[in-house]
Amino acid sequence: MGVLEDRLPENILFTTVDKFLNWSKKSSLWYMLFATACCGIELMQTGASRYDLDRFGAVFRATPRQSDLMIVAGTITHKMADRVKKLYAQMPSPKYVIAMGSCANTGGPFYKDSYAVLKGVDRIIPVDVYVPGCPPKPEALIEGIMKLQERIMEKKTLVKK
């Protein structure tokens, strides 16, 4: 506390609209509680005691309607795929997707021999950031989220036609 208060007595800040919009988007990345498999446990642990994902403004929501970010944590099977599409469609824009773990990236260990696993979630929904690993360590996931924040900052909303 007190970091901003003492320095900005007049309460006037200069920035661009884009920067301000992007800054607010990136600072409250609410992610949907959507864990399908093993990677979901690492997602849980990232959100919990030691890694404390809340620091990044990312807290979990139980419903897609309140989420900005979908972290696809785990294997997506063909049976599940239609539901994933629906969940993605239910999220309000602007929305982002992180594919966490090899399964969500490419089908992972099930790529070759399984008939039931979708070989990469990008076959059904657009993906912004891929985090490799089986499962990725929490540090890796956090890096993925920071990468996403960087990408959000680059976004141009107000451009001259």
């Binding site: 049976k79 099930f110 021999d113 008939y115």
Partner: peptide, 15 residues
């Protein structure tokens, strides 16, 4: 159930 059916038993026969 079956939303996470990854066919482990089939994989076992192929590895």
């Amino acid at each position: 159930i079956g939303y996470l059916h990854r066919a482990l038993e089939k994989i076992a026969e192929r590895l």
